[in-house]
Amino acid sequence: MKIRALTIFASNIDKDKIENYANQLSSINDSLIWSKRIAFPPKSLNEKIIGKIPENKDIIYSIIHLSQKDNLSLIKDILSVNENFYGSILLNNPSYVDNVSKFIYDLEPQLATRVAVLIYDDFLTTPYFPVGSANTLIDSMAISLIYPREFLDGNAQKALSVADEYAKKIATQLKLKYLGIDVSLSPWKEESVAEIIEKRSGKLFSFGNMSTVAEINKEIFEIAWKLKITPIGFSEVMLPVAEDNVLIERVNEGTLTLQGLFLLTSVCVAGIDMVVVKKDYDLIRKILKDSMALQIVKRRPYGVRLIPSTDSGYVYLKDYGRIPEIKTL
């Protein structure tokens, strides 16, 4: 088990505060922590602070969170300054789908990995970037985990318990309110969530996969409830294609198509995440519209992170490698 993200949520922004939090995070040396993060509040970025943010390669920032009607070009401008910067767009009005689609269509693949569309009523407080923002009243802290191996081995309860106690101690040391854990079961490469699904219900995509995902979600919530852990953010099964070796393999061989992935996202989150799609404006637009329809039915936060490809049928991404374009049929 790893703490995927130890995240500080800064309820308001000033240079000294961010520098102080960056220094405090840098001073925590523990192999248990996979990444350290600072989340900014929605729609509050003072562009003058951009050049004053500490350039610490160990810390990543969800720095800009705009709504659908804002000047979206700011996201591209700001994220181009530093590869540790992430951002998101809140989309909940169909009349803005065209503008958001055009923005995504124009993104270079590597930059697209650091931008997500959140389909929901409001901005979301979660350690998962890019959508995680500090939509909080006071400065706070929360964590997320990498624990597919523990879940597969029947040790998820122990992993969550250890992580919760550890995070509480860190929050006390940093004098921050502890919000809890986004208990989402999320993958990283060989620690595959898709493998867990396939062991229970067959190869992706097969009938039975959806009920299996629903069962896994139920198990996650039951463990959190038993341990009295506060689940925040998404707190469901996650299937980010580029981050799961088995998902990459299924997309590459064509057994998991965009339609199959959509069906799975009806019972899990974060939605259509880290998916390489054909660089086609109309396709991107339809994906967003269908995602909005799914979110209305689910009544849960739904994230979309698309990576427009070239004519080659795949893209090469730093830290991810060669990721195939998902087939639509």
Rank of each mutant, 00 (worst) to 15 (best):
Y96E: 15
I181V: 14
L66Q: 12
N82T: 04
A171S: 13
I63G: 09
T125G: 00
V117C: 13
I49E: 04
K76F: 01
I119A: 12
I119Y: 12
Q110Y: 07
Q110I: 06
T172I: 10
H65S: 11
S88L: 03
S62F: 04
I119E: 14
F151D: 02
Q68G: 08
T113N: 12
A116S: 13
D122G: 10
I60H: 13
H65G: 10
E108V: 02
K57G: 04
V162R: 10
Y166E: 11
F85M: 01
I146Y: 14
Q173M: 13
L111E: 11
N82H: 05
I60R: 12
K175T: 10
K102P: 03
E83D: 14
S144I: 03
K102G: 03
K169Y: 13
I78P: 04
G51T: 05
G132A: 04
I53G: 00
A112R: 07
D182F: 08
D164N: 13
A163P: 06
L72Y: 09
T125N: 05
S73T: 12
N84E: 09
D139M: 04
Y128H: 15
Q68S: 14
Y166H: 04
L90C: 05
F123Q: 13
G132K: 08
I78E: 09
Y86T: 06
S80C: 11
T126Y: 07
K169C: 06
V97L: 08
L111C: 00
Q68Y: 14
P54T: 04
Y61K: 07
A134D: 01
F123G: 13
Y86A: 07
L90M: 13
D164G: 02
Q110E: 05
A163W: 00
I104E: 14
T136E: 11
L107G: 00
N99E: 15
K52I: 00
S161L: 05
K169T: 14
Y120W: 15
P54S: 03
K169G: 02
A167R: 03
V81C: 10
S80Y: 08
L91K: 10
A156S: 10
V117E: 11
I89C: 11
L66N: 02
A156M: 06
G51E: 14
G51W: 06
K168E: 14
S67R: 12
F85H: 02
L74N: 11
L124T: 04
Q157Y: 00
E165N: 14
D70K: 08
I89A: 09
L174F: 15
N56Y: 07
I75H: 07
E150G: 02
I143L: 02
K158F: 02
N93K: 14
L66P: 14
K102E: 15
D70T: 08
N82D: 11
I75M: 06
I181N: 14
I143Y: 06
G154N: 05
L176F: 05
T125L: 05
V100F: 07
D70R: 11
E150V: 03
F123W: 08
P109K: 00
